Amino acid sequence: MNYKVLLLDDERILLQGLANKIGMMDLPLRIIGEAGDGEEGLVYLERELPDIVITDIRMPEMDGLRFIEHVRAMRKPIHCVIVSGYNDLEYARKASRLGVQHYLFKPVDHAELQSVLTGIVLQLRKGDSSHDE
Rank of each mutant, 00 (worst) to 15 (best):
1 M>I: 12
2 N>D: 15
2 N>Q: 13
4 K>H: 12
22 I>M: 15
26 D>E: 15
28 P>R: 02
28 P>I: 04
32 I>P: 01
35 A>Y: 04
36 G>P: 08
37 D>T: 06
38 G>M: 03
40 E>L: 10
44 Y>Q: 09
44 Y>F: 15
45 L>H: 03
45 L>G: 02
48 E>M: 10
51 D>Y: 05
51 D>L: 01
51 D>S: 08
52 I>D: 01
53 V>E: 01
58 R>P: 02
66 R>S: 08
66 R>P: 00
66 R>I: 03
67 F>T: 03
68 I>G: 01
72 R>D: 12
72 R>F: 04
74 M>P: 02
75 R>W: 05
75 R>I: 04
76 K>H: 06
77 P>W: 03
79 H>F: 13
80 C>T: 13
80 C>L: 04
83 V>R: 01
94 K>N: 01
95 A>I: 03
95 A>M: 03
97 R>G: 02
97 R>F: 07
98 L>M: 07
99 G>C: 04
104 L>E: 04
107 P>G: 11
107 P>N: 10
107 P>V: 11
108 V>R: 11
108 V>W: 09
108 V>Q: 06
110 H>M: 10
112 E>V: 14
113 L>T: 05
115 S>Q: 15
118 T>R: 13
121 V>H: 05
123 Q>D: 14
127 G>K: 14
128 D>W: 02
132 D>M: 11
